[in-house]
């Protein structure tokens, strides 16, 4: 623009070639389509087909030791619990193996005594008693994994709101492979 005044004059006098009804409708359409997509969720693929699968959490697989032994309990006083459902129809999944590990009063996340697996009941629920979880790397948290092939693998890392909590609960929604 050579001169501010002439530019302003020009714009008010002519039909703006840069922004008309067609471009407004086009950009508005793009914007609404965009909001319907993933982060805004108005029309996410998951809601179209029902219950969305759980995504793995950052750091969820850290210090994972595949095939933790099936256990009745790993200790006492702290409960890790949750529920496993199928993506889409939300049906509870029975007999699914969930692997659990965490830093407890027995030691860190790599301590074998802090690793164990449980199976889900008919209603999809699971729970495991272990020693008190203690903050590890700055946060009190547990690790849970589904990694058995029939569904997409999921690693969770739920954080306890308080280090003095005596339980932590989470949920898996698994997508068939």
């Amino acid at each position: 623009m050579e001169n501010d005044n002439s530019g302003l004059k020009g714009e008010t006098n002519m039909k703006s070639p840069f922004y008309n009804r067609r471009s407004f409708l086009f950009s508005a359409g793009l914007a609404s389509a965009f909001t319907a997509l993933e982060p805004f969720g108005l029309l996410s693929p998951a809601s179209a087909i029902g219950l969305a699968p759980t995504r793995s959490m950052r750091g969820g697989s850290n210090n994972y030791r595949p095939n933790a032994p099936m256990v009745d309990r790993l200790g006492s006083g702290f409960w890790v619990s949750g529920r496993v459902r199928r993506a889409g129809d939300g049906a509870p999944l029975e007999g699914v193996r969930i692997q659990i590990w965490a830093a407890t009063t027995l030691g860190g996340e790599r301590e074998p005594r802090n690793h164990g697996s449980v199976l889900t009941a008919a209603d999809g629920s699971f729970r495991l008693e272990m020693e008190q979880i203690v903050p590890n790397f700055g946060q009190p948290h547990a690790h849970l994994a589904y990694d058995d092939g029939a569904y997409e693998t999921v690693f969770l890392r739920p954080v306890m709101p308080s280090a003095s909590d005596t339980s932590v609960s989470t949920e898996f929604v698994l997508a068939p492979v």
């Binding site: 950052r58 750091g59 697989s61 850290n62 210090n63 860190g108 996340e109 790599r110 590890n136 790397f137």
Partner: peptide
Amino acid sequence: VTSPPDTQD
């Protein structure tokens, strides 16, 4: 040494 994956992250 304590947790290689956490430190790498």
